Every structure is written in structure tokens, then in C-alpha cells.
Simulated scan of single mutants.
Amino acid sequence: MKSIIKFVFLFSVSFLMAQSYQSAESVEFDPVNNQWLVANGSRIIADDGEGNLSYFGAGNASHGLEVLGNTLFAVASNRIKGYDLSNEDEVMNLIIPGVSFLNGLTNDGANTLFVTDFSAGKIYSIDVSDISNPTYTELVSNTGGTPNGVLYDGTNNRLLFVTWGGSAQVKAVDLGTNLVTTIITTSLTNIDGIVDDSLGNYYISSWSPDRITKYNNDFSISEIVTTPSLNNPADIGYNQDTDIMGIPMGSSVIFVDLSLLSNSDYNANTYEYLVSSNPINESSYIQFTLQDAEFIYLRIYDTSGKLVKILMNEEIQASTHKISLADLQLSSGVYFSRLTTQKGTSLTKKLIVN
């Protein structure tokens, strides 16, 4: 297996405010309220990515979190709870009799949740199409390991889950047959979380060594993508719109810009994507060139990954395009402009506003 080592800039640490992290275990981006939600034992904490913390209503979660539509689902001491993202009210409280230690949680983007039972080596599916009357099914009775984080992979009609212990594995559940296969046996110990990006790459968090490892779509190439300053990274979360990963580590949560991993120099040259001048002033502009007509997203995010301005969201013709930055009306600070194309290219430039 080819192994490539790269490093990523960790740019935001959530410091403790009136609320504090004591057992941050799982993190999930909340697109409804443009914030991160963190399972922190007895309470769910909302984190704006800039160190400002608040309680998410009276919600509690011990492990996995998943946003599905307008609902946050949470593993809370062997129950699966649901919370309305608009008003933070509890809308579901499901008990699955006989479970041992519910842990990882994922969803199919429609009406089904999947949850791992860490100690019993099982996986359950939960139908939440009627949230007032959810039903569950034992999907896998024996995972052949200790299942932790889990990810729905709709492209391949499967679940991917990671295992605890030495020589930890990434395994798959075929959702057509419910059969379990091993994708890869790693040299890592205690894999906790798994997420994917918009390009079909996978990221896993491990406790030994303490790191995030990136795999390509068939797990044949791996990259070490974080500095070795992590400490027991748990159930990671990922915002595909901004390439921001949230990493919970017990007493803290950090946020990582994965776009800094991409080798975008070639693509940047291909699209001639530039910002002039920077720091931003009344004459500054973003310029890029398209060789073909494409649908383009041009957006600005702050350092926490929050979307702060949409500059373009449309199909445009092949040409050189210049977008004025004269009227950004942004507070002083560092921002990122992100050009995303229909062909899958994602390019990022730092903006400095004085």
C-alpha cells in the first residue's frame, strides 16, 4: 500500500466558556443553524467554531450524533433520541431492549438510521419515517469485531464501519444482503470515527497512533493528514460544503480545514483562480477562467467554516470572469473564498479583511 504523509493546519480550537467540554465524543455540523453540535455526556453543546459554546436546549448525548433533515438524532445512554433543530425540543426517545453499548450513528439521507452496538458486535437499522413511532431491526447480529463509528455509503449501497482494538479494521455491510466483509486491516489500534468527503475519499480517527488517516475510494492509498498533536480523537464530523472537519477529544474540539490538504496548484493554474489584491480593499477582485461552460459556486466562509456570503451560484460561460470584492461588508478577520465547479474541482483562497 502506498503511504503519503501530509500535514494540515489546525486553525480553530474551541476554548471553554460558561459551558465546557468534559467528555466530547461526537461532533456533527448543523446546517440549519450554521453551527457544530457536540455530544458531551449529559448535555449537547453547540459550538460556533470560534470558541463560543452554548447548550443545545436540554438535549443530551453520550455518543453518536446525526443530522437528518430538520432533526438531530443522538445516542444517549443506549437510547436514540431526536431533537428538532429549529426549537431544540425532544421529538423522539427510542429504547431498543437488550442492547449493550450503542455507539456510532449514521443515516441514509432519507428515513433510516443505523447504529452500532459496540459491546454486542451488532448493528441496528431504525426507521424514522414516523418519528412519533420509530421502529427498529437488528441488521447485523455479528459484525466479527467491535464496531465503533459507522458511515452510510449510498454510492455502493453499503455501510462502512470501523473497529476497536489492535490491527483495527474497516468493514462493510452490503445493504442488499446484510453480509459483512473486511475492506482493510490496518496497523492502527482503536479506530473511533469515519467520514467521507465529496470526492469519495474516507477519513478515520485512531487512538494509536493519535491521528486522522485519509484513504482513497478503494482504500488502496493512505495519507496521514493531521499533525501528531491529537489526543484520542473520537467520532469525527465533516462539513462537505466547506471541507471543515470537527475532531472531538474529550476536553476539547478542534476544527481542521481539509482543503489545505488538496494539491490544488495545478487546478488553480488551470482555472487561473486568483485574488487581487489582498488584504481586501475597494479595488480587490476574484478572477478565474473557464475553458467550458460550467455551473460555478463561489462562496466566502469564515475560519469556523460558516458560510458568510454567496458571490456566485449559477452556470456561466467559458471566459475569464472578474468578481468585485468592493462591497463585502465583512468584519475584520481572515476568511476563505471557495470556488467549486461542476467538474468537482474545489479551490480555496485566503482573504484578509482589515
Rank of each mutant, 00 (worst) to 15 (best):
D243I: 00
A168M: 07
P248I: 09
Q240M: 11
S198A: 13
D130Q: 12
N232R: 14
L159C: 07
N157S: 15
K171D: 07
S229M: 10
S141K: 09
V170R: 04
D235M: 10
N232C: 08
T186Q: 09
D235Y: 08
G121I: 13
P228F: 13
I123F: 01
Q240F: 09
Y238S: 01
I126C: 02
G149N: 10
S252E: 11
S252L: 03
K214E: 15
E223P: 05
Y124S: 00
N201I: 01
D197S: 13
S129M: 03
T177I: 12
T137A: 14
G176I: 09
L151I: 13
A234I: 00
T186R: 07
T186G: 10
N217W: 10
N156I: 09
E138A: 01
S205W: 07
Y202T: 03
L139Y: 03
I126E: 01
S198V: 11
V256R: 10
L159F: 07
L175C: 04
A234F: 00
Y136N: 08
I236R: 02
K214I: 05
L188E: 13
N148P: 00
N232L: 14
K171A: 07
I194V: 15
I183T: 10
N201R: 14
S187H: 14
D192M: 12
T177D: 08
S208V: 15
I212M: 06
I236N: 02
L175A: 02
I184S: 08
Q240E: 13
L175E: 02
I126V: 14
I247P: 01
S220E: 08
L179M: 11
I221D: 11
W164F: 15
N201A: 04
K122S: 06
V162A: 06
S125P: 03
T182V: 15
I254M: 11
P134Y: 00
D127R: 04
L199C: 01
T163A: 06
N190T: 13
P147Y: 07
N231W: 00
S251D: 06
I254K: 12
S229Y: 12
N133I: 00
T226A: 08
I224W: 13
A172G: 11
G250M: 02
V195R: 10
Y215M: 10
Y136E: 02
D243G: 08
G250D: 03
D196T: 10
M245N: 08
